[in-house]
């Protein structure tokens, strides 16, 4: 784990905490390495390592992340991240190289990395699942700002639907964060489409893989919304996440307000620290509780 960081950084991190307690690592050339982790009291702590990486260290980390084959991570680098073999999403920051059509062609002179450590917490949603999913499977939209636990939530919800409802679930895993290259258990009745965009995942998934439920992370724009609408029109439920502080936030954004009013999502919940703070139940687009 974290082999790509090199021995100096990795060993110092593990002198602070173990992998399971880590939540985030920030590597900044000429500035330092900063880690966030849960301490013994499950309180989020932050520390800085004594080791100060230089630009060459950051470059070497990126090369190791790509398994020394930059072209393998080419498409994800264009979007500003690389996913490690263990499913950590590594955001990369540097100088964007603009190519044809004004699009980012690559990122060079990488000076900092933000590594998010994914978690699987089995069982933490059992009471939620028992309360809302015993009678029927419902579409669910999870709203939270960053670090609220959205990905962990939908990973577990998808797994429970797959295993306990014995239902075919398709995980559209755009950045390999949901499955972490198979490291995480997504359920026996699950199919995982990795590194595809949501458009491909939804349209081709519905046509070719016949899922009853699709799970995906981070609805971002109109194209993602169209995928969800297409799935719903085909009788497929969607479990998805979206960045936002609360339901009101979403209602203020036109592309998402439409999808809320459309009645596609039976449940919209506001998440904080992995826990649903508010759960809204909809019926045909109308809020019932």
């Amino acid at each position: 784990m974290l082999e790509y960081l090199g021995d100096k950084i990795k060993n110092e991190i593990f002198s602070f905490t173990n992998y399971d307690n880590l939540t985030e690592i920030r590597v900044r050339a000429a500035k330092g390495v900063f880690i966030s982790y849960f301490d013994n009291y499950r309180k989020l702590s932050e520390s800085q390592l004594t080791y100060i990486p230089d630009i060459a260290d950051v470059e070497n980390i990126v090369l190791r992340l790509c398994n020394f084959s930059v072209f393998c991570a080419e498409e994800s680098i264009k979007q500003g991240y690389i996913t490690s073999n263990d499913g950590e999403r590594v955001g990369i920051c540097g100088k964007c190289v603009i190519g044809v059509g004004g699009k980012v062609q690559t990122i060079k002179d990488i000076s900092s990395l933000v590594i998010r450590i994914p978690k699987q917490i089995k069982g933490f949603l059992q009471s939620f699942f028992d309360k809302y999913y015993t009678d029927s499977i419902k579409s669910c939209l999870v709203v939270s700002p960053p670090f609220g636990g959205k990905t962990t939530f939908i990973r577990e919800l998808g797994r429970l639907i797959s295993d306990e409802k014995k239902t075919d679930v398709l995980f559209v895993d755009e950045r390999d964060e949901l499955s972490a290259s198979g490291k995480f258990d997504l359920g026996k009745n699950s199919d995982i489409m990795r590194y595809c965009d949501k458009r491909f995942g939804f349209y081709n998934g519905v046509r070719a893989l016949n899922p009853k439920v699709i799970v995906c992370d981070e609805l971002m724009d109109d194209n993602d919304v169209k995928g969800v609408i297409f799935a719903a029109a085909s009788g497929v439920k969607t479990i998805a996440t979206i960045h936002g502080n609360n339901l009101k936030d979403l209602q203020n954004k036109s592309e998402f307000n439409e999808i809320i009013k459309s009645g596609i999502f039976d449940i919209i919940l506001e998440l904080k620290d992995f826990i649903p703070k508010k759960v809204y139940i909809f019926d045909g687009g109308k809020l019932i509780c």
Binding site: C66, F68, V70, F71, E74
Partner: peptide, 9 residues
């Protein structure tokens, strides 16, 4: 080898 984009490689 392995250092470039797919086209350049």
């Amino acid at each position: 080898i392995g250092k470039y984009s797919s086209i350049t490689e």
